[in-house]
Design a protein around this nucleic acid. Structure first.
Lengths: 331, 331
DNA sequence: TTGTAGGCGTTATCAC
DNA sequence: GTGATAACGCCTACAA
């Protein structure tokens, strides 16, 4: 059976009151050195350490942050999670990773996060409509929320993301300079607004170059396989002469799947017959097997910002940072 | 300010005692239907839901499981995390993802997990020596621990993993049948026992085939880049005639990095000049760009087992499940 | 510097 | 079926 020593027990062993024990474990509390030593010694002997659960109940601070994730197929999530957990831990915050799926939806997760008194909720690459919240109002009951690596659909919920407008401008500028004139854009279908927003913006950039009409490819999910299927469907339907000459994909994992099909199944050369561009700059896209031209999100800045907002060192507001274009051989 | 309604407030609003409110939210409690309705109505109005923090303090059950991870470079971690969180959530358990690194080591994390009263700790792909525990004894104070996807170094801590003995036998059998005779094995250096154990077992299998001596390559970490460096170092030092003819890597990500170097920098054909085998069967290894022969861990069984042990539906004991060989073109 | 009351929001258990 | 008392282990405030 699990049985932890309590402050009371330590107090008895040390011959002081339990409040003195508490003080010994409270940085900056006024306590005599002699008492502190006695307490620490007794605590050591009893293997005592404060019960953070009880502390949280009393202080209303859990030092836990929920991170909602609904897409585990993009390898890019992993390094971001690594950095995020590290920074949060450096601030004394632990990360509760919550898998949003069919059986456990946003509302469910949010109610849970509320009941557990998490200090904050991060929507990492996921979002929901304002209506989803129903009657529950932000600011009362619900923990502060933030959207990471995506735009926010919910008024009052700040989004910390890469500046996609700047990114797409830079990408299109680059592609135009390279001489590409028949662009296509592949989205992962799942979400409406974000993906469609990006696609629309991509199209706008081309329009400013005098090029109207961006071919639209739609993958079923965000995975290499889905990217492959979408590329296959497109190439099967389009005769060689009428095809796009550059395909921008919403993220790298789609791009790699598409590239597989382009090269292996249709024998096309990348970038000569069809150029491919991704987004995220995942490690495997950078190797010689793909040499994928991509765009790197300013992950570090984004995480610094969101952690600062959670700790209160920084004002909570929507903000977008510029990333950097990664030029390789695929486009 | 966050302010949640309490059972007491609901009680006043509903004109009952707070214990009746609690009963209304306790499945299977004896309460009159009329009272329950009154309570639920009042709760609805006040937006009340039970405070799980207080409940945990009183019951000594947090419904939270800590998952320790110290390597975020292997993309294979992501789908496993997805399945693990989903299964845990299905059992009403949330996952606290803890990043073990220089600034936050196992001991630190374990003390924290203890203080927060987590129901269990999963060491996912990571482990430490028994000595690390110091004086703290298992079974008293510390939450129950499990090692996932790796062997356990700690007596009393069960490991749930893929049966590497069976796996390596099958792999070597396959390679031998294919005609390979000069094997090499690449480990990620970091950990001693597990990696070295695998390498030793790999060597044993070959010895049974009458082949002594397995070339040993050592990567600095588990990443494509580290795998590439290790392969580069080896190939640079070994003249063509004396080289191994098959390279088994401890995981896919090392294998992909190695394959990049083998093909692009040294112009060798895979598998003709040098065959490559990985472990984990990550999505990107399966595409035409690599066609990596690999070995798939029985993730689902492993997770079912560990979740069963945590919930107590299953006896806690070390167990290894056989996986399945994935034959592709790289070997 | 130290001790005391009272409270945080539940649950367990017993009396009515 | 319902109410009440005593925990759970800590923290904040105030008093000594």
């Amino acid at each position: 059976m699990r049985k932890r020593a309590t402050a009371k027990e330590v107090a008895e062993a040390a011959g002081v009151s339990k409040w003195t024990v508490i003080r010994a474990f409270t940085p900056g509390a006024s306590i005599a050195d002699a008492s502190r030593q006695k307490v620490l010694q007794a605590a050591e002997a009893l293997n005592y350490s404060p019960n953070l659960l009880a502390r949280s109940l009393a202080t209303n601070i859990t030092h836990q942050v929920a991170v909602f994730v609904d897409d585990f197929t993009n390898p890019h999530k992993l390094p971001v999670l690594e950095m995020l957990t590290e920074r949060l831990q450096a601030e004394g915050l632990l990360t509760v990773l919550i898998n949003i799926n069919r059986h456990f939806d946003h509302v469910h997760a949010l109610i849970n996060a509320d009941q557990r008194q998490f200090d904050a909720v991060i929507l990492f690459g996921t979002a929901f409509r304002e209506e989803t919240l129903g009657d529950r109002r932000l600011g009362r009951g619900l923990p502060p929320m933030f959207v990471l690596a995506r735009d926010s659909q919910i008024p009052g919920v700040p989004a910390i993301a890469c500046d996609t407008e700047v990114a797409l401008n830079e990408i299109v500028e680059y592609l135009f300079d390279k001489g590409y004139r028949r662009p296509g854009f592949m989205t992962g279908a799942r979400t409406l607004s974000t993906a469609l927003g990006r696609r629309r913006h991509f199209a706008n950039c081309w329009r400013q170059k005098g090029i109207d009409g961006v071919m639209e490819l739609t993958a079923e999910r965000y995975s290499a396989q889905a990217g492959a299927e979408a590329a296959r469907a497109y190439l099967s339907d389009s005769p060689p002469g009428s095809r796009i000459d550059v395909l921008m994909c919403e993220n790298d994992i789609l791009a790699l799947g598409a590239m597989d099909v382009v090269r292996s199944e249709f024998g096309l050369r990348v970038p000569h017959d069809l150029a491919v561009v991704g987004f995220d700059n995942i490690e495997l896209g950078g190797g010689p097997a793909y040499g994928l031209t991509s765009y790197e999100q300013p992950t570090e800045k984004m995480i610094d910002a969101i952690v600062g907002m959670i700790t209160g060192e920084r004002a909570s507001e929507t903000i977008a940072f510029p990333g950097s274009m990664i030029r390789r051989l695929s486009a």
